[in-house]
Design a binder for these strands. Structure first.
Lengths: 135, 135
DNA sequence: CGCTATAGTTATCTTAATTAACTGTTAACA
DNA sequence: TGTTAACAGTTAATTAAGATAACTATAGCG
């Protein structure tokens, strides 16, 4: 299956640009959105938890979190430790999350138009397998 | 099909890291490799042609080309114009291309291990459709 | 108590891309 | 034919995203 990487990667830039454009009115980018997504699903997460989940280094997470805090989308609660932070979306953060979620889902609908459900679901399986093999 | 973007994007970073690591011994990165790939298939291409093909701006191509020229992997021949450059891989560039091509194909084999040919080919079709819909 | 591991931050650097402004060349056309 | 438009390519400056190294502070364990 030669050319699968090339084929895969040709989609990346247009997709990330479409997502960033969609998120721009909320002063978000996809990298910030990732943190909101994780916190929506795992409130009280720590910084290191997010770092591990997305496979990015801690300083990257620190900056994303600082930015989201500035925007009023998340708060750092005192964790069960004095060194661990317990992060969670604010009420405003949850509202913004819900709005973006809706728009991203709508975009997914438009971008997958004309693709049958079966190949689409198989792609998700393929992605999971690729990821497993890459680790 | 909610979550397809997330699923797709989770593969990007590990994949690009694996590719860049593979290309590092040749002083290449995936962004440089793209130019070599295009020139292997379309010798005498111009800078703008590459810019359009990959959907990146001209200054980005200029810098990639300058770097590849420094490495001795490509040459700027005089085009049929005095303003257009006609780019092509050097003999050394072709040799490096062939070596990398082999290794990338081998990596593709490892990374797609355990995925049946059918879902894999369907994924390529899905990528093409996604790309079409994104434009 | 004292050592080691861990959570998080700061500073600095790299890579890749963008935009804006520029030079020089071509080609269209009045 | 001379002027003007459009086009190929470059340079400079900026932005975004990430990495590494070095640091502070706390936790946990002998």
């Amino acid at each position: 299956m030669q050319g699968i990487f090339r084929s895969y990667l040709s989609v990346y830039r247009p997709l990330i640009q479409a997502l960033n454009q969609l998120l721009h009115p909320y002063e978000l980018s996809y990298s910030l959105w990732q943190v909101m997504l994780y916190l929506h699903e795992h409130a009280q997460a720590s910084l290191v938890e997010i770092s591990h989940y997305y496979g990015i280094e801690k300083p990257g997470v620190t900056r994303r979190v600082q930015r989201l805090e500035e925007l009023g989308y998340l708060t750092c609660l005192p964790g069960h430790n004095r060194r661990e932070k317990s992060l969670a979306l604010t009420a405003q953060g949850e509202r913004v999350y819900a709005e973006c979620r809706e728009q991203i889902t709508a975009l997914e609908g438009r971008v997958t138009a004309g693709i049958a459900p079966d190949p689409l679901e198989q792609s998700v399986t393929v992605f999971r397998q690729l990821l497993d093999n890459l680790k």
